[in-house]
């Protein structure tokens, strides 16, 4: 080791900060540094000596630079440690971020249902919330002055119309009582095969712990050749097992909807008592979860489909009802109060 290298090492040992190190580096390798000074001696040497001296200076230079680089690494990590030690954080303080808001349970369940049907190749359709009497009732085989109208307590919209419908207290426009009118709207402007769902708000003139004047439904329709009642059972069983788990029992029992024939109520085994009977299922072990049926040929006639060629099924379900079962909510009004303590749980 040269004397120059030795004196450099001695100085390096005394260095304790990156600032000092930078000074040391410029003192040795800078424009007017020690090494440059050494090089100035070259002209005084013989050509023979020059080669050896040149090589020696170069070796020193490499040695010095490498040493500085190495030492710098150590210093930097030491300095970071010191700095952190001087400026401690309390790792238990909460992080600084925007707390995400809550999702509405109706939105969550709607999205879940939509995803399941979209995965089966269903489209998504929509219709207006204020419907004409024709789409909400007549086209669905619910004639005026028919007791089937009593099945749904209807909100009527004030219009300037007079005549028979005004006389009987009914009107030309209603807040749709179900999402079924979307069936008619879609069938009127497209041809089979069809498979879609229609989610949306619906309205009934009714309000208590389990009834809300506004709630959400998802309607579904499949129309094709050779669609059977067994297919309706298969699809709805598959759907409910996806939503409530593969072991949930599902049964269909005869019912009446003017726009399906045969019609069915779809029950699933009570989620809470596993079929033993409890308050929720009124002791029956079964919970009514949706309505369904084969499309009534009168409905096909109203939209110009030939029921000798095509058959189909329709189904409808209440979203709040499914959400209430999934999340154990026993008062439907909670969905519309906007209580953040409720909504932020989702």
């Amino acid at each position: 080791m040269t004397a120059l290298a030795e004196s450099f090492l001695k100085e390096l040992e005394a260095v304790t900060s990156t600032v000092d190190l930078r000074q040391l580096r410029s003192r040795y390798t800078g424009k007017n540094g020690v090494l440059t000074g050494e090089l100035k001696k070259l002209p005084t040497l013989t050509p023979h000596e020059r080669a050896a001296f040149g090589k020696q200076i170069n070796d020193d230079k490499v040695f010095i630079e490498e040493s500085i680089k190495e030492y710098e690494k150590q210093l930097v990590s030491k300095e970071i440690k010191t700095k952190l030690a001087r400026d401690p954080v309390d790792i238990t303080l909460p992080g600084c971020y925007k707390k995400p808001g809550g999702r509405h349970p109706v939105t969550i369940v709607l999205a879940e249902i939509t995803d399941i049907f979209v995965s089966m190749g269903f489209g998504i359709e929509e219709g207006p919330e204020v419907e004409s009497d024709y789409y909400n009732f007549e086209a669905l085989n619910i004639p005026k002055n028919h007791p089937a109208r009593d099945m749904q307590d209807t909100f009527y919209i004030e219009t300037n119309c007079t005549g028979a419908s005004a006389q009987s207290g009914e009107g030309a426009f209603v807040l749709r009582t179900h999402t079924s009118p979307v069936q008619i709207r879609v069938m009127k402007h497209s041809r089979p095969p069809l498979r879609f769902i229609a989610p949306g708000k619906v309205y009934r003139c009714d309000s208590d712990v389990s009834h809300s004047p506004m709630f959400h439904q998802v309607e579904g329709l499949v129309v094709d050749k050779n669609i059977s009642f067994a297919n309706l059972k298969g699809l709805l069983e598959g759907f409910l097992k996806k939503v409530f788990g593969p072991s949930v029992p599902v049964r269909l029992r005869p019912s009446f909807f003017p726009f399906t024939e045969p019609s069915a109520e779809v029950d699933m085994g009570c989620y809470f008592c596993k079929g033993n009977g409890c308050r929720v299922c009124k002791g029956t072990g079964w919970i009514e979860i949706m309505g369904a049926g084969m499309v009534d040929p009168r409905v096909f006639r109203n939209v110009g489909y030939d029921s000798d060629i095509y058959s189909g099924f329709a189904f409808g379900m209440g979203i709040e009802r499914i959400a209430s079962l999934k999340y154990g909510i026993d008062d439907i009004r909670l969905y519309y109060e906007g209580d953040l303590r409720f909504l932020r749980q989702f």
Partner: peptide, 20 residues
């Protein structure tokens, strides 16, 4: 008896559907 009717998934042909 609806219970005596089997549950069979429908066989449908694929189509491009309206998921806007």
């Amino acid at each position: 008896g609806y219970n005596n009717i089997p549950a069979v998934m429908p066989q449908l042909s694929l189509s491009i559907n309206n998921v806007s």
